[in-house]
Deep mutational scan, measured.
Amino acid sequence: TTLHFDLDGKKLQYTGVSEEIARLVEELKRRGVDLKEIVRILEELLK
């Protein structure tokens, strides 16, 4: 799965993300978590 974000005018793309992580990101968005925080979490998970 590939995730795309537009953060402060920067286009971020994460490829090869598992379905689980993609679902987690969608859930965080639904809960109103700040996009910067979501990206920070995502980068930690993908290390």
Rank of each mutant, 00 (worst) to 15 (best):
residue 31 R to D: 07
residue 40 R to C: 04
residue 45 L to F: 06
residue 19 E to T: 10
residue 24 L to P: 02
residue 47 K to H: 11
residue 1 T to K: 13
residue 33 V to E: 12
residue 20 E to F: 06
residue 5 F to T: 01
residue 14 Y to K: 00
residue 31 R to T: 08
residue 43 E to H: 05
residue 26 E to C: 14
residue 20 E to V: 06
residue 19 E to I: 14
residue 5 F to H: 00
residue 3 L to T: 01
residue 31 R to A: 08
residue 19 E to C: 02
residue 47 K to N: 12
residue 16 G to M: 07
residue 38 I to F: 01
residue 34 D to T: 10
residue 32 G to T: 04
residue 19 E to N: 08
residue 37 E to Q: 12
residue 7 L to E: 04
residue 25 V to M: 06
residue 5 F to N: 01
residue 6 D to P: 00
residue 39 V to E: 00
residue 46 L to I: 09
residue 34 D to R: 07
residue 28 L to V: 03
residue 40 R to F: 15
residue 1 T to F: 15
residue 6 D to I: 09
residue 40 R to G: 10
residue 43 E to L: 06
residue 44 E to Y: 15
residue 24 L to N: 13
residue 24 L to Y: 15
residue 30 R to S: 11
residue 38 I to Y: 01
residue 23 R to D: 10
residue 23 R to L: 14
residue 8 D to Y: 03
residue 3 L to N: 01
residue 4 H to E: 15
residue 14 Y to F: 12
residue 8 D to G: 06
residue 43 E to I: 05
residue 35 L to A: 09
residue 22 A to H: 07
residue 7 L to A: 03
residue 24 L to G: 10
residue 7 L to Y: 07
residue 12 L to C: 05
residue 8 D to L: 03
residue 41 I to H: 07
residue 38 I to R: 03
residue 39 V to Q: 03
residue 23 R to W: 08
residue 6 D to W: 13
residue 6 D to L: 09
residue 24 L to R: 15
residue 38 I to C: 03
residue 19 E to M: 13
residue 45 L to H: 09
residue 11 K to W: 10
residue 2 T to V: 09
residue 24 L to E: 15
residue 23 R to Y: 11
residue 26 E to V: 14
residue 37 E to V: 09
residue 41 I to M: 08
residue 42 L to Y: 01
residue 40 R to P: 04
residue 44 E to H: 13
residue 14 Y to V: 03
residue 43 E to R: 04
residue 36 K to I: 11
residue 20 E to S: 11
residue 7 L to V: 13
residue 23 R to S: 14
residue 9 G to E: 04
residue 1 T to S: 09
residue 46 L to E: 02
residue 12 L to F: 10
residue 27 E to Y: 15
residue 46 L to N: 03
residue 29 K to E: 08
residue 37 E to P: 02
residue 37 E to C: 06
residue 6 D to R: 02
residue 20 E to D: 13
residue 18 S to M: 04
residue 16 G to T: 03
residue 35 L to G: 08
residue 1 T to G: 10
residue 26 E to S: 12
residue 15 T to K: 08
residue 25 V to Y: 04
residue 2 T to L: 04
residue 12 L to Y: 14
residue 18 S to P: 14
residue 45 L to C: 07
residue 41 I to P: 00
residue 13 Q to C: 07
residue 3 L to K: 00
residue 42 L to P: 00
residue 25 V to R: 00
residue 26 E to N: 14
residue 30 R to H: 10
residue 43 E to W: 04
residue 34 D to A: 13
residue 24 L to C: 07
residue 42 L to I: 06
residue 23 R to Q: 14
residue 29 K to S: 11
residue 34 D to C: 10
residue 42 L to C: 03
residue 36 K to E: 09
residue 37 E to T: 10
residue 24 L to W: 12
